[in-house]
Simulated scan of single mutants.
Amino acid sequence: MNVDPGRPIQLVLPLLAGRNVTLRSFRSDDAPMIQEASEDDLIPTITSVPTDNSEEAALAFIERQHERLHTRTGYSFAIADENYVAVGQIGLWLEHENHGRASVGYWIRPSARKRGYAADAIFALVGWARSLQQLHRLELYVEPWNEGSWRAAERAGFEREGLLRSWRQVGGVHRDMFVYSLITK
């Protein structure tokens, strides 16, 4: 196979298994899960989930997740439960890949929270990310009040490094964020 050195290698989304979840590509039948997430008070504010809960908006979101591979933005997975039904989303974002870093972001639909899906998805993603030679550090950012999210990160092995004051604009307001990291190598 001849590889053009000036052309980036296409990313491929793997299928990843956790204990109770599977990380897989988004499918059109995941639209109802996106529609539920769009009605959450926070998810559309801090993610690219649309505030419009129409099926068309949900399908457009799904298409954007597939495009992330083509643009090398990162890997966007649907988090599926033991019945292969989508319960959330997790991503490995490559904005700082050239510095050996990637960030992790995740959310769980409101009706599926408090079942350990987030921590299991983070474990599965981290296990796979360790195989990516270009990465040595994973980061994630969580608002201090979001105890469920930062506890899931800690259960998955991330360590809190500190508080970033006024770090990110959320809903038009600059918010503090805890920064977490996990060294992969």
Rank of each mutant, 00 (worst) to 15 (best):
A129R: 07
P5V: 08
G127R: 12
L15F: 07
H136K: 09
V49C: 03
G74N: 13
Q35W: 05
M1P: 15
N20M: 14
H66T: 09
A60N: 04
L16R: 11
E147Q: 09
E97R: 12
A102Q: 04
L140W: 06
Q133H: 11
V3D: 00
M33S: 10
M177P: 08
A118P: 12
D120T: 10
A60M: 03
G162Q: 05
T22L: 02
G171V: 01
A86K: 11
Y75G: 02
F77D: 00
T47A: 03
G148F: 14
G6L: 15
Q89G: 10
I62F: 00
V173A: 06
H99S: 08
N20S: 15
E95G: 02
W93S: 04
D120R: 11
P8N: 01
R130Y: 01
V142M: 00
R101Y: 12
W107Q: 00
E67L: 14
A152T: 09
I108L: 08
Y117R: 01
Q134W: 09
V179Q: 12
L182M: 04
Q169D: 05
S28L: 13
R160D: 04
L94D: 02
G105P: 05
P144R: 05
A124L: 02
F61R: 02
L125Q: 11
E39S: 12
I43N: 03
E95C: 00
Y106Q: 03
A118S: 13
F123V: 15
L15C: 03
L135Q: 07
V126F: 10
I34Y: 05
T45P: 00
E159R: 15
G148S: 09
L59K: 15
G100P: 12
W93D: 00
R113I: 13
Q35K: 08
M33E: 00
Y180C: 03
D120Y: 10
R151Q: 13
P32T: 04
S25C: 11
A37K: 05
A118I: 14
S131A: 03
R137E: 00
R175V: 07
S25A: 14
E67A: 15
F77S: 01
A124Q: 04
E161Q: 14
G91V: 10
S181Q: 11
D81T: 09
R155S: 08
S181R: 13
D176R: 13
S149M: 01
E143P: 09
S111P: 13
V87R: 03
A156P: 08
L182F: 03
R101S: 11
E63M: 04
H174R: 06
R115T: 11
L132Q: 11
N20I: 15
P32L: 01
A60T: 05
V49S: 03
Q35I: 10
G18F: 08
A124W: 07
R113W: 13
F77K: 09
H174K: 06
D120W: 05
E63L: 10
E82M: 11
W145N: 02
N53R: 11
V85F: 02
Y180V: 12
Q65P: 07
Q169R: 14
A57K: 02
S111R: 14
I9Y: 07
Y106V: 12
L140E: 00
H136R: 12
Y117K: 01
N2S: 06
Y75F: 09
L69C: 05
G88N: 03
L182I: 06
R68Y: 14
L138P: 06
G162S: 15
A156G: 08
P144K: 14
K185A: 14
P144Y: 12
T22A: 04
P110T: 10
D40N: 07
